[in-house]
C-alpha cells in the first residue's frame, strides 16, 4: 500500500514517518516477544523444571501494545478487511471517489466515538490512583494495556483523517479512491 506521507506536505510527512517507524518497531518486537516467551516457557518446563511465573501478566500487556499499534498501522495501510462488493460494481472514477469519501467519513465518525471511549477508559484508570487496577501477581497497572487500546483508536482516527484529507485534496485521482 502506498505511503500516506508521500501525499502530505513535509511538516506533516516527517513526523508521520517517525511515528510509523516507532509503531513498526513495537509490532516487530511484540511478535518476537510472544514467540520467544512461549518457547522459553516450554524449554524451562522440560529442561530446567522451572516456571516462568505469571508471565501472562506482562506478555498480555505487551501484546495489547503490539496489537493496537498494528491495528493503527493497518488503518494507515488500508489493510482492514471489508466487503468489496461495491468496489466490484462501481467502475466510474467519480462514483468510486464519492463512495470512498462516504466510507472514510463514516469511519472517521465511528473512530471519533471509539477514541472518546478510549480517553474515558484511560481517565477512569488514572482517577483510581493509587488504588488503581493492577494484575494480581506482578501489579502491572491496567493502564498499560488500556492506554495501548486508547492510543490505537486515536492513531486510527488520525490516519483515517489524513486519508480523508488526501481524498478531498486530490479528488478522484487520489490513490484512496482506487482501492
Amino acid at each position: 500500500m502506498s505511503d500516506l506521507s508521500d501525499h502530505l506536505p513535509r511538516p506533516l510527512a516527517v513526523p508521520l514517518r517517525g511515528l510509523r517507524a516507532v509503531m513498526h518497531a513495537i509490532i516487530v518486537l511484540n511478535g518476537c516477544l510472544m514467540a520467544l516467551t512461549f518457547f522459553c516457557v516450554v524449554i524451562l518446563r522440560y529442561v530446567f523444571h522451572a516456571d516462568l511465573f505469571a508471565y501472562e501478566e506482562w506478555l498480555m500487556a505487551a501484546a495489547f501494545w503490539g496489537f493496537f499499534m498494528a491495528a493503527a498501522v493497518a488503518t494507515h495501510d488500508r489493510a482492514h478487511i471489508n466487503a468489496d462488493i461495491l468496489g466490484l460494481l462501481i467502475t466510474r472514477p467519480l462514483w468510486r471517489w464519492r463512495r470512498a469519501l462516504l466510507v472514510e467519513a463514516l469511519e472517521l465518525a465511528i473512530l471519533s466515538y471509539l477514541s472518546w471511549l478510549g480517553w474515558e477508559m484511560v481517565m477512569e484508570e488514572i482517577a483510581d490512583y493509587p488504588m488503581w487496577q493492577s494484575t494480581i501477581a506482578l501489579h502491572i497497572p491496567f493502564l498499560v494495556p488500556r492506554a495501548a487500546i486508547a492510543l490505537g483508536f486515536v492513531l486510527m482516527w488520525l490516519f483515517s483523517a489524513l486519508h480523508l484529507w488526501v481524498l478531498l485534496k486530490e479528488g478522484p485521482a487520489a490513490p484512496e479512491a482506487q482501492a
Binding site: 518446563r45 523444571h49 516456571d51 516462568l52 511465573f53 505469571a54 508471565y55 501472562e56 501478566e57 494484575t135 494480581i136 501477581a137
Partner: peptide, 18 residues
C-alpha cells in the same frame, strides 16, 4: 497467577506451573 497460592503449593512440596 497468585503469589499466595504458588507459595503455598511450593511449601506443600509441589513444583508449580502457571
Amino acid at each position: 497467577s497468585s503469589n499466595v497460592v504458588k507459595d503455598t503449593m511450593k511449601e506443600l512440596g509441589f513444583n508449580t506451573t502457571t
